[in-house]
Amino acid sequence: MGRTSTTNGQPTDELARDRASRWWVRGRRVGSVDRAAKFVDDVGFALLFPAAKPIGPSLWEAVAGEDEEPFAGGMNDNEQKVWGWKDELPRRGLAWYGAFLGGRGSFLSPSLLANLYPGDGELDDHEHLDLSPAAHELAAALAIEPLSSATLRALLGDKNKYQRAIGELQKNLLVTTAGVEEQSNGWPAALLTLTCEQFDVGGRLDHREAARQYLDTMLDAAPTDLARAFRWPTLKARDLLNELLDLDQATTKDGRRYQPTGPS
């Protein structure tokens, strides 16, 4: 693409402009849940709200633009949209949602999810992964039926223990949200379910394709960027990017940062 990449880890003006276009920040705003699904399907992965460092696109910026701060004026129309869609998109099987990229609320397209999902798509996938006893307990409970976050917290009897356990399950893409459950008082609680119950996953692991999608969306990345995003060892990320080089699906000028070939 002929763009200059980064200076001291920050994107140059040219790369920032290209990313704004690639990440749907410029052009027609996302105004419906169906268009939000098309956005996630196009970029492959997205944060719910932007991070200080541009670790990926965000649904918020695709809805509100790059200059509007979320919740600056309370829960307004744009905030209500994205906050509702984080539950509606996975409920309808349009995008996975959970704490993934940088430990932040993130969406994955169904195709990228399938390329990253670590199990066979069975209810006992958690049993084959190195998880804490609490995480296994939650996964076993969710194998019976979807449960609210409030119910799962009560099951473990400790809020911090629950947060660590559900974080483990989401980090390994085993659990997603599936709507909300109304509470007798306060905000509705997220309804959680096993990813394999909500999406077609299992037996389709393809980390090289996942790396290609990541590079196509980021437009410029170092192996450490890819490793942090998908929780891989840096050496594995570098090897995958070099495989893309060999397949003419990526280029590099200095062997440190990589760019996709052809139009994004």
Rank of each mutant, 00 (worst) to 15 (best):
G2T: 09
Q10R: 13
P11R: 08
D13N: 11
E14T: 11
R17D: 05
R19W: 05
R22Y: 02
R22H: 01
R22M: 07
W23S: 10
D34T: 13
R35H: 12
R35I: 07
A37S: 10
A37M: 03
V40R: 00
D41H: 07
V43T: 12
F45Q: 05
A51W: 11
P54H: 10
G56V: 03
P57W: 03
S58N: 07
E66S: 12
E79F: 14
W83D: 14
L94V: 05
A99Y: 06
G103A: 14
S106W: 04
F107I: 01
S109N: 06
S109H: 06
S109I: 03
L113T: 05
N115W: 14
Y117R: 08
L123Y: 02
D124E: 15
D124G: 12
H136R: 15
A141N: 03
L142I: 09
L142D: 02
A143N: 13
L147H: 08
G157M: 11
G157F: 10
D158M: 06
N160W: 09
E168W: 07
K171V: 08
G179I: 00
S184K: 07
P188R: 00
L192A: 01
D200Q: 10
G202Y: 10
R204A: 15
D206K: 08
H207L: 15
Y214K: 04
Y214I: 03
T224G: 00
A227P: 04
R228I: 02
P233L: 08
K236Y: 11
K236F: 12
L240V: 02
T251K: 03
T252W: 01
K253E: 13
D254T: 11
Y258F: 15
G262P: 04
